[in-house]
Design a protein around this nucleic acid. Sequence first.
DNA 1: TTGACATGAAACCAAATGGTTTTATATAAT
DNA 2: ATTATATAAAACCATTTGGTTTCATGTCAA
Lengths: 122, 122
Amino acid sequence: MSPSAQKHDVFQAIADPTRRKVLKLLAEKELPISEITSHFPMSRTAIAKHLQVLSEAELVSGRKVGREKIYRLHPEPLTELKQWLSFYEKFWENKLSILKHIVESSEDHRLLVIKSEETDKK
Amino acid sequence: MSPSAQKHDVFQAIADPTRRKVLKLLAEKELPISEITSHFPMSRTAIAKHLQVLSEAELVSGRKVGREKIYRLHPEPLTELKQWLSFYEKFWENKLSILKHIVESSEDHRLLVIKSEETDKK
DNA sequence: TTGACATGAAACCAAATGGTTTTATATAAT
DNA sequence: ATTATATAAAACCATTTGGTTTCATGTCAA
């Protein structure tokens, strides 16, 4: 595929556990495909495809060195994720918001307890 | 699909743009399925399935009120995402780590020089 | 009671996903 | 020059995904 085919975004890219593990590997140091593959119970081709997805999301980039293709982490796109997350942080960082959430759901909890007790007595 | 099938995790759940938009809607206030659906160009059934995925990831929960099923945001699982992200933040927040990355693997040595000078001024 | 409304459940479908195997090509090492 | 290594490219495959349509069921309103 063409470079930066923009087919996959960062949200999709990190959805797969294998790809997340690849990113973690590359966080330590850049690596050729075959060495990355050695950490997984699947074929080199499969890993190459995962690298392509990561590459489309611009989370990694590969350069050819001799007969090897060496991939390295390119973490900048993760800032998009961080931004997205920051919107929701208020729901667990702001105590008032958390409290509000609890208050809103308290009726249901009472209901649940009562039902459980009734069931137990029978 | 079976209820609470624990089939989807938070990474998968937020991978889909529609589901992210649903979360944002529910961040404002809890809503019944049909009202959520009114914000999207797709069927109620499709939205119901997205809600199921979000529910499996425990990002939302639904309770039946009369003939409506009202869904509410449950943002706690996003902390897992935040934790995951925090590991990578050093690569763009910590200048030394960024520099280390450039030194280790960059073809662009001009960038290296600029970053070094900035660091030296301290 | 009779509709209308809100959802649930199931069958179906095309496309995407995550893998495989096979074949080809360029580079490195002997 | 030959062989082993590293990757690329393509065909193929099963399952999942993201949607649809249809039909059934429970609840509210007139």
